[in-house]
Amino acid sequence: MIHPVPSTAPAAPGGSPSPGGSAGRLAALGCLMLAIILVVGLGGYFGIGALMSRGDPRDGEETSEAPTSPVQTFGKDEAQPFGTPLLFTPRDFTGEVVVTLDAMDWQAGGEIAEANTYNDPAPAGSRYIMVTATLENHADVDFGIAGGISVQYVEEDGTVHDYEAVVVPVYEDTDDVPAGGSLQWQWAYLVPEDAAEGGHFVLSNFAPELEDGQWVEAA
């Protein structure tokens, strides 16, 4: 007896999907997982590359700025920021000196008292301020600070102060800046106790007119 051939393949026992259908779904799932892995991998690659191209943001903070070149300007209208190297040409001196104001102390009474017990304390109603500078001698002969440069302090209200004859913390046995060398120096001033922080320092060749000097903002 001849039986008719069924038109469709019989279902798997128990009604479960056929092996061919399961394999197809597994292959599709594998392709999907592979696509996800590729997308994640490429995203990470390009993200790392972008970070590397930008560099470490701290690099800019750790890199110090290059020193500025010495400038030579005169008058209050051309006052330079504190810390600017000033090209100073002393009178009766064959050469140039670069002066840089390095540090400012608005309450220097304690340091001056410790520097020397013979220093007079600030009078009542006054206080000491002190500025520190580095002088670089670019000449081939020594440069004497005492007779070669005047540094006055000018308050915001225009009051002018000459430096005081006191022993300062940074003390040198000589005020000569050696030829081709440098020397750190300090000047102290007496100002009113309630004087505002600010004003200017004026470097000059003992000129009678302040406007003829080189002005630096007091920081």
Rank of each mutant, 00 (worst) to 15 (best):
T100S: 07
D162N: 13
F82R: 11
R58T: 13
I145N: 05
Q80D: 06
H3K: 07
G198R: 00
S53D: 15
A207N: 14
G75W: 00
G15T: 06
P169F: 06
Q152V: 14
Y128S: 11
G125Y: 00
A35M: 02
N137Q: 08
D102H: 05
E172W: 11
S204K: 00
A23P: 02
G41F: 15
F46E: 15
M52N: 15
T89H: 13
L42D: 00
Q214D: 10
S150Q: 14
F93L: 07
N137L: 09
T8C: 11
A108I: 08
Y189V: 00
H138F: 11
A188D: 01
V166H: 07
M104S: 04
G15Y: 02
G148W: 01
L135F: 12
R127I: 01
S64M: 13
F143G: 06
G110R: 13
R91N: 12
T159A: 13
T132G: 06
T159V: 08
N116H: 10
L101S: 05
R54Q: 12
E155Q: 13
L190S: 02
L42F: 09
F74S: 10
F88L: 06
V202R: 08
V202F: 03
Q184E: 04
A133M: 10
F206R: 08
V168L: 12
G198Q: 00
S22Q: 10
S16Q: 11
L26Q: 09
S53Y: 08
G181H: 03
E209C: 06
L203P: 03
G95T: 06
P178A: 05
V141W: 09
G95V: 04
G181K: 11
E96Q: 14
I149H: 06
D59Q: 10
L190R: 02
P13D: 12
A146T: 13
V97E: 12
L101A: 08
G75A: 08
A113Y: 11
G44R: 01
P17E: 10
L183H: 01
A12P: 02
D162I: 09
M104F: 03
L210A: 04
G20Q: 11
M104T: 00
V168R: 14
S64Q: 14
A23G: 01
